Simulated scan of single mutants.
Amino acid sequence: MLAEKSLSAPNSPRNSLYKRHRMSLPISRAYVNPYFSSREETGVMLAKLIKYYARNPDTVVLSIKPTATALAHEIAKELELPLDLFLVSSFQFDGMTVGAITDKSDQPLLKEQIIRGCDIPKETINDLIAKERIALETLKKECCPLNLPLPNSENATLILCTDGIQSGQNARNAIAILKKILGYRGKIVLVAGIMGSDAQKMFMKETEDAIAVLCPQVVGTVASWYDDTRVLTNEEVRQIMSQARDLSKNI
């Protein structure tokens, strides 16, 4: 069941203008019905929680994975903000994430401590990066992000959107790339339909705010929270990006 809603201090974006919903669920969700009907519905719900940012200057909505683009598009429409797709791809070695890349920079984000601890050869890392770069460039051609310039003043805000967070690895890599690789200096707000309560606490330390419609103790699979389990095709993502281009012209 839904627990009591929490509010933040006055005069802060973390205030009564939007409320973070928390819930406590049993370990097993085998017989729990999906909470959300679709990603689009979830985007509208999230937009209501972050209406503080509506029409804010130097604010951009970014979908941090292609399958969450429909959710991010609803947020951008509701808040009248520009939308783009922020492509980040992680790569692994023996099941461990050792780095990530973005289409916005040639410089990779490397987990140096893991690489040194596992004594992974530089040649191996370079091969992993090269393969991931090819896959990312293919995805970029198929999804056609707008490549909007990132606002980079201290007053800027990036709203990073995803449908759900389990381990949070992809979101953490996106945040790290923005700060360490791209030199972003503004605020970052992470929003998701579903986010584990422990993950939310972690991201509250790394961002301006971490907001979700639901924050259960156990997430399981993100897809299990959605009645509509259909995954967006790259063609559908490209169509949403085309609509986002028209939206940006009218803002």
Rank of each mutant, 00 (worst) to 15 (best):
V218W: 14
E154Y: 08
A9V: 05
V219T: 13
L148V: 06
I75W: 06
F203S: 05
L128N: 01
S12Q: 05
T229L: 05
K51H: 14
I165S: 06
S248T: 12
T221V: 05
M195P: 11
S153G: 15
E142A: 07
R29K: 15
Y31C: 11
K249I: 02
T221F: 12
T97P: 00
G168D: 10
L7V: 02
V189S: 11
V219W: 03
G168Q: 12
L71W: 03
S16E: 14
S248F: 06
K5W: 00
Q92F: 02
K140L: 07
A47T: 01
D103I: 09
L139G: 01
I101L: 15
T42R: 01
P13L: 10
A3R: 12
N126L: 06
V32E: 15
I134K: 12
P151R: 04
E208V: 00
Q243S: 09
A156G: 13
S24F: 14
Q239K: 13
I115G: 04
L190K: 10
V219D: 04
H73K: 09
N126P: 00
S153Q: 08
T229H: 04
P108C: 02
K65C: 13
I194M: 13
P121K: 06
R133M: 04
R238Y: 02
S12W: 02
R230G: 09
I120T: 03
S37L: 02
L2S: 11
K122I: 14
M45G: 03
Q169T: 13
E132R: 01
S28F: 03
Q200A: 14
N33K: 15
